[in-house]
Design a binder for these strands. Structure first.
Lengths: 358, 358
DNA sequence: TCGCCGCATGTTTGCGCAAACATGGGTGCC
DNA sequence: GGCACCCATGTTTGCGCAAACATGCGGCGA
């Protein structure tokens, strides 16, 4: 790298060295420490002095160096987020929510992505994040045990929609409650049972949604149809939906996400089965498109704002108390964020059913 | 490799001070500078010495402090990205692409979001980013002139899908080419003209798509229908689509994005107009759902990977040459990333048309 | 009146690292 | 065989900031 030739003690001739506290201090006729106090608003400074300092800061265009501050204080006001692909609506929303919440509290967000859900890709993502001085980490759908592999020990971690690990606080959409609401809605409409098009088995939210579906069916004493598992894509919903569409006894389906529901709707349409006339369908996620599906989809809306706020708050709480008193990582509880059933036009009482209960 | 309990020479008073180069150096019996050389792989170090150092690093669980490095070197290996809402597919994809590209080059990404497209919200986003020591900034759809308001002068900037500013390199999807391909596809099918459902007027991509639509129509001597402008949402597509659906002369529509196209499709269906039998529709974005729309949508696929790679490369190029030789910000060119028309089932020759040209 | 206290501010120090310069032993070259 | 040079490594310094401690001054209670 070229520049910075001169051996002069000061870099006067360098292009434009950023103004430092010393520059501001000199201009304002105070010590650097006083400038620091003004910047941080912390200690008591004579208003008049503060004003002089503020003016000097503006004059030289002073911006604090977060690197220097981080070095001196030991933290960075930056959190790391580990996310899977942002093509998936939920992941993008969760990231956005975390960014907003962090910004609201004066923290910035360093994002790393794991390209695939393989152990190798995940480990690499952690490793990348570990190289930066983040104060804490939010894992989105990454198994906590993976985190321990590559994250520096002692790093505060909050897990979102991942397996609860007694070591870390965990924030989850209450997938169980959402799925239960969906299934109960269908049963309440009078359907004898509810089929299920599940998400990938290695996905935490998918598992919880499927489990709740099964639980509600069992509790209601309904016959339990065999589950088929897709991969979240509309393509898989379509592919699996074509077989499903051939089951005449199927009058209601709970699909693990909206995109697969979209594929299923197409398969049903092609098979000549009307929705909701012949078959009712419920999705999960409430993607913006789902209100305009053919027909508008009944689905479960996740509270991403709540997830972002809660996860950031939990993380920051762990930063405060004495910078990790080491033994005190006992906060392994799980916080559930309630989702909300959004009823639209894809669900109705089964054909021939007279008066829907409820 | 979990462990790494204590064992550090220090670490008695404070919970667990992170191992520093000095610790590693002491353990390996070398100077801190030699450790630095090993860490950076830069200078020549005796292999045997390097091995000792490496082992010492592992033993004490050494991780370099990026804050200290940033302080010493003046840069952070971190770029900032300013993005609008991540609910929008394209924004999320662009962010993901930039993150991936940056990671591939050893840079991390600090994301800030602007909640709204108001000048105030955008200025705040810039301000937030300015507080962190990023080496450069990628603006996604943020007008470059806004950047100058709040970004430190001299900060390298690359603008993605924003107004070209001779001061900054600019990377854009070739919206014009994409829109032209869409319109030409429709005309080629035999349609007399093509209607247009545009995006919001304050959006750069929307403007360019609309302009190209108009240009192609004019060049082909087609009548130019009045444009209606939505806000990217399916809702607006539906709302505006209901009026559009009443125009019997309308046989082809170019819609500025897929979500609005989805709304339009619904409006057309409700109006009893078959797609593509009565009306052909082309969208833009190729969101994952569009292949399963009723009917599968002909649309324009953006190369987000190319956008990410290119924008990061351009930005990093500007970092290298002598750390901004100040006057040398002349690289104001625009790089166009070619999109690709994806033909599906929503387009066909108009009713009564015999032999589609081409 | 004296002494103590609190307040505004200054001074010193060190965070962890890398750039610049220093050193000392070996090697090649004529 | 002498000198120059190179290579591996050590030493010094300073990046910009904030924590800890120091200073000096004015006010207030006894």
């Amino acid at each position: 790298m070229g520049a910075s030739r001169e051996g002069a003690p000061r870099a006067r001739s360098r292009p434009t060295r950023r103004a430092s506290m010393a520059d501001v201090a000199a201009l304002a006729g105070v010590s650097a420490q006083t400038v620091s106090r003004v910047v941080n608003g912390s200690a008591r400074v004579e208003p008049e002095t503060a004003l002089r300092v503020t003016q000097a800061m503006q004059k030289v265009g002073y911006r604090p160096s977060s690197a220097a501050r981080a070095l001196a204080t030991g933290h960075n006001r930056m959190i790391g987020v580990i996310s899977f692909d942002l093509k998936t609506y939920g992941n993008a929303r969760a990231l956005e929510a975390v960014v907003d919440a962090a910004q609201g509290r004066g923290y910035s967000v360093n994002v790393v992505t794991a390209s695939a859900r393989t152990r190798k890709a995940v480990a690499e993502a952690f490793e990348r994040l570990g190289r930066h001085d983040v104060d804490g980490v939010i894992l989105n759908q990454a198994d906590a045990l993976d985190a321990r592999l590559a994250l520096p020990s002692g790093m505060p971690v909050v897990v979102v929609d991942g397996d609860d690990d007694s070591r870390f606080p965990c924030v989850q959409t209450d997938h169980g409650a959402g799925a239960a609401a969906a299934v109960e809605h269908l049963l309440g409409l009078g359907h004898r049972t509810v089929f299920h098009l599940g998400g990938p088995a290695d996905s935490f939210p998918a598992r919880h949604r499927s489990e709740a579906w099964l639980r509600v069916l069992a509790a209601a004493g309904c016959p339990v149809p065999r589950v088929v598992y897709g991969d979240w894509t509309a393509e898989s919903g379509y592919r699996l939906g074509r077989s499903l569409a051939e089951r005449p006894e199927m009058t209601a389906v709970f699909v693990a996400n909206d995109q697969m529901a979209l594929g299923l709707l197409r398969a049903l349409r092609e098979a000549g089965r009307d929705v909701p006339g012949d078959v009712s369908v419920v999705g999960f996620d409430d993607i913006p498109e789902s209100a305009y599906f053919p027909p508008p989809l009944t689905t479960v809306d996740q509270d991403f704002g709540g997830i972002g706020d809660t996860s950031v708050r939990l993380l920051l709480d762990r930063l405060a108390p004495g910078e990790l008193p080491d033994g005190e990582g006992e906060s392994g509880g799980t916080t559930y964020i309630a989702p909300r059933l959004v009823v639209r036009d894809s669900t109705a009482a089964p054909a021939g059913h007279q008066a829907p209960r409820t």
